[in-house]
Design a protein around this nucleic acid. Structure first.
Lengths: 154, 154
DNA sequence: ATCATTATTGATACCATATATCAGTTAAAC
DNA sequence: GTTTAACTGATATATGGTATCAATAATGAT
């Protein structure tokens, strides 16, 4: 399963700015140990739409607990996004520095991302309308990607 | 934990139209058995923001498997929404007939809902912009509700 | 009504994802 | 270099949910 990065924000054409995972952890007082370097390396290699198990598989000599712990730290620090497939199974994705949202192909699992000024404006307008204090949101789009809709199982 | 229904769509003032759970299952060829009636009863009682376990607790004499199966059927039929808290734990909520989205208090767990023409328009505009075929989306807002932000643990 | 058919149930086992525990190890600070 | 604190990884446990399957209940045909 290959994960392609498609950037739908055709207006702002700069490449996605990825957080520096090691630096993000270090800034929060975490030590950059050998096992954490290994996990970070695997995450950067797998990039978009990986699972905790796919990291464990790639890092046989790093303990499962350490893999999960590092994922958790990186989520807390905001360097990873946790995505939920329609069936509830989780996926992780390298974040980008700017706020963004994800599309996930329900057929092949490919994760892509987009930024859209319309949705950002709409989000702000919603946040004005909801009386409670908004502390976060989740927004994911499920798609059948171009590759899956042309050839392959449909 | 009390779950209050707040309808933020002040413009369209009709009350939320809830699906008839038994009818929805029956229409799809499911039998309306005693245990299913019990589950449906508990769901209608708990309304917004319940968990599978809270149903099991309320229905000691109905098997766990049956509770989970009934939830699954109702999700497939579109009569329930599955929501995900920021930490990844799931909640269920009685759907309404019209498309809508949810807010969830990260402190007390209260689920509320809203409909907003701005977001619906924004969603359609996003769907036009994303080249892949969109087959669904997830959108949830995490809040600290009024009750939690005034009194209590903050 | 009775029987045959089919769906449903619930006890149990199991699976996936993830966290808690804790003795042993590593890295940092002094 | 020793002390101190953080980290690791094996293992146990928690949580949310599905698979299995014999027993049971609902339905349809006679």
């Amino acid at each position: 399963m290959v994960s392609i990065m498609i950037d739908y924000s055709m207006t702002s054409q700069q490449p996605a700015v990825r957080p520096n995972l090691a630096a993000a952890l270090e800034d929060r007082g975490f030590r950059i140990t050998r096992p954490r370097q290994r996990v970070i390396g695997a995450i950067e290699e797998q990039g978009e739409g990986f699972t905790a198990e796919s990291l464990c598989d790639a890092l046989q000599d790093v303990g499962r607990a350490t893999v999960y712990r590092t994922i958790r730290h990186l989520l807390e620090v905001g360097s990873l996004c946790k995505l939920i497939m329609p069936d509830g199974t989780p996926k992780y994705s390298l974040a980008r520095v700017e706020h963004h949202h994800h599309t996930m192909c329900i057929n092949c699992g490919t994760v892509s991302e987009f930024r859209d000024s319309t949705i950002e404006r709409a989000l702000r307008s919603i946040e004005r309308e909801i009386p409670d204090e908004i502390v976060g949101h989740r927004m994911e789009f499920y798609v059948v990607c171009a590759a899956c809709s042309t050839h392959g199982s449909r």
